[in-house]
C-alpha cells in the first residue's frame, strides 16, 4: 500500500514562502493545524518569511525517518542570536515536531535531526531571534510509504 496525501493547499509551489504573519486577516493563508500552533505559541508576534534555510529531501520513500537540517542567518553574537527553532508538520497527526532552544554559546545557528512525516506536506520552521523577531521558512516533501515497511503512525 502506498500513501501520498496532497495537503499543499496553503503554500503554492516548492520552496516558495507565503507570509506567515499571524494577524487575523492573514491567518487564512496557512492551514488550520499550523494556525493553531502559531496562535498557541506566538499569539501576538508577527512572523516574517526569510532567514530560515531548510535542507529536506523533496521525496522520501519512508516517512519514518527523514533527515532535516535547519540553519538560520544570524551572527550568533551575545547581542544578536537565534533563541529558538521550532518545527511544525501540518499534515502529521500532531503538528508539533520539535523545538530547539539556542543561544550565542552555540556559535552557529544550525541544527539537524530526523523527523517523521506522515504525508505529503510543507514542513514549516519558525525561528525566534534575540530581538524578539520571528522568521519562518518551509519545505515541501512528498512521502511514499512502501507496504513492507513498518506502520508510521
Amino acid at each position: 500500500m502506498i500513501r501520498t496525501i496532497n495537503r499543499r493547499n496553503w503554500l503554492a509551489g516548492a520552496g516558495t514562502l507565503a507570509t506567515l504573519t499571524v494577524q487575523p486577516r492573514l491567518l487564512a493563508a496557512v492551514s488550520e493545524p499550523v494556525q493553531s500552533v502559531l496562535k498557541r505559541d506566538f499569539p501576538t508576534a508577527e512572523i516574517q518569511p526569510g532567514r530560515v534555510n531548510i535542507e529536506l529531501p523533496a521525496l522520501a520513500e519512508n516517512g519514518n525517518s527523514v533527515r532535516m537540517k535547519i540553519s538560520v542567518d544570524s551572527p550568533m553574537t551575545p547581542t544578536d542570536y537565534v533563541s529558538f527553532i521550532q518545527i511544525i508538520a501540518q499534515a502529521n497527526p500532531l503538528p508539533d515536531v520539535a523545538r530547539f532552544d539556542l543561544s550565542h554559546a552555540n556559535g552557529l545557528a544550525e541544527v539537524e535531526t530526523r523527523i517523521r512525516v506522515s504525508a505529503e506536506q510543507d514542513i514549516v520552521v519558525v525561528a525566534g531571534l534575540s530581538d524578539g523577531s520571528l522568521w519562518s521558512g518551509s519545505a515541501h516533501i512528498v512521502v511514499t510509504v512502501a507496504a513492507c515497511l513498518d506502520a508510521l503512525y
Binding site: 500500500m1 502506498i2 501520498t4 496532497n6 511514499t144 512502501a146 507496504a147
Partner: peptide, 19 residues
C-alpha cells in the same frame, strides 16, 4: 519479492493482499 500494481488517480499503488 513480487508485487501487482494498479494506477490510481495520481499514483501507482500496490494491490493489497497480493505480492
Amino acid at each position: 519479492v513480487a508485487g501487482v500494481y494498479q494506477p490510481g488517480e495520481k499514483i501507482w499503488t500496490e494491490i493489497d493482499g497480493a505480492g
